[in-house]
Design a binder for these strands. Structure first.
Lengths: 105, 105
DNA sequence: GCGTATTGCTACAGTAATTGTAGCAAAGAA
DNA sequence: TTCTTTGCTACAATTACTGTAGCAATACGC
């Protein structure tokens, strides 16, 4: 897959940051990755296991996007972890846990 | 497109509700739809306009999913609006607005 | 040195999801 | 009737994702 043009973000045609963010979070596995990294950094393999064996192709793509967005970083000794900004975003996703349990179906 | 098997939710293989919710929200336009309905109900056409002319095929699919999930409902006089549960979920998405503006790029 | 196991990452073909355009039936207003 | 709007769908083209396999680089024990 060709890499996305620099700086360009799908869905941000209006220029409103919220649209770019909603679009980024609305891609498959993005929210899940943030969720799985909520406690500790994970290696790419561990992350894949946590994400129900999702294909490394997408995971790699999402990780690149999340890194370019400044939410995720690759630590020195390997392993992906949340940046301070990413942790802040994750804090907004966490409450979904309790909501989901009340929601059930 | 064939309709999804009843009750089955993609990404919920573990049975954990949070996974089903993250997967639902991780589909294209889902978060955006919740965002656009945050203030008032919109007709399908108005929603499409708000969503940057997204194809009615996906919007219809997402609206059906959101209705089955109990987050969105079709009012008597036409027009899609959030249910109380959906409004609650929307409350958790709203803070992303301010976050996105600080995030920018 | 050697093998072996890990790291992050990529190629490739097949499949599923999304797009873009066009159009439908039903309900209401003129 | 005609015109307009409602929610909704068909269809082919395009894009995104899956599943499997494998790469180079690094680090282990031997």
């Amino acid at each position: 897959m060709a890499k996305q043009a620099s700086g360009k973000v799908r869905g941000s045609r209006t220029g409103r940051p919220i649209m770019a963010l909603l679009d980024l979070l609305g891609r498959r596995w993005t929210l899940r990755i943030l969720w799985e990294l909520r406690e500790e950094p994970l290696t790419s393999r561990a992350l894949r296991t946590a994400c129900d064996e999702a294909s490394p192709t997408v995971l790699q793509a999402r990780l690149t996007e999340l890194r370019e967005a400044g939410f995720v970083e690759l630590g020195d000794g390997g392993g992906y972890g949340l940046t301070p900004l990413g942790r802040e975003l994750c804090e907004m996703v966490m409450p979904l846990h309790r909501f989901a349990e009340r929601w059930q179906r």
